[in-house]
Simulated assay, not measured.
Amino acid sequence: MTDHSTPAPRICPNCDGFACAAVTLGGRDARGHLRTITVHCPACSGLGVLPARRVREGARA
């Protein structure tokens, strides 16, 4: 019996799967909250995974 399973997604090597991060801008606003911005990994566009590589048919290594 064969088990057909989907391959695991490739985790982005640039962000190790943590695609979004909150970065503090320093200081606080009038209410006392830290001012932060959200930044996304440019390699995976904030997804944390990369698409699987396509294997060429008939290509030799």
Rank of each mutant, 00 (worst) to 15 (best):
V49S: 10
A30K: 03
G32K: 02
A21P: 00
R56W: 07
I11G: 04
A52E: 12
V23G: 05
C20M: 11
M1C: 13
R53W: 01
G46W: 06
A8W: 00
L34I: 02
V55S: 15
A30I: 03
A22Q: 10
D16V: 00
M1P: 09
H33Y: 03
D16G: 05
G58Y: 11
H4F: 13
A22H: 08
R53V: 09
L25G: 01
G17L: 08
A61Y: 12
A43H: 07
V39G: 08
R53N: 08
L25I: 06
N14E: 12
A59W: 15
C15N: 02
I11C: 04
G46N: 08
R31G: 00
A8K: 09
H33N: 14
V55T: 15
C41H: 12
G58H: 15
A43L: 09
G58S: 15
C44N: 10
C15V: 05
G32V: 01
E57S: 13
C44H: 11
L50Q: 15
A22V: 03
A52P: 10
I37V: 15
L34V: 01
C15S: 03
D16H: 10
C44L: 10
R28N: 03
T24V: 01
P51N: 08
A61F: 13
D16W: 02
V55D: 15
T6D: 11
G46A: 08
T36Y: 09
D29H: 02
V23Y: 06
D3Y: 12
C41Y: 10
G32E: 01
N14C: 07
D29L: 02
G27M: 01
A19D: 07
R35W: 06
V39C: 13
P7Y: 05
P42K: 13
A30C: 00
T38K: 10
P13F: 09
F18V: 05
D16T: 03
A22T: 07
A59G: 15
T2N: 14
C15Y: 01
V23D: 06
S45C: 08
P9A: 07
C41N: 11
A52M: 06
G48D: 08
M1F: 12
P51Y: 03
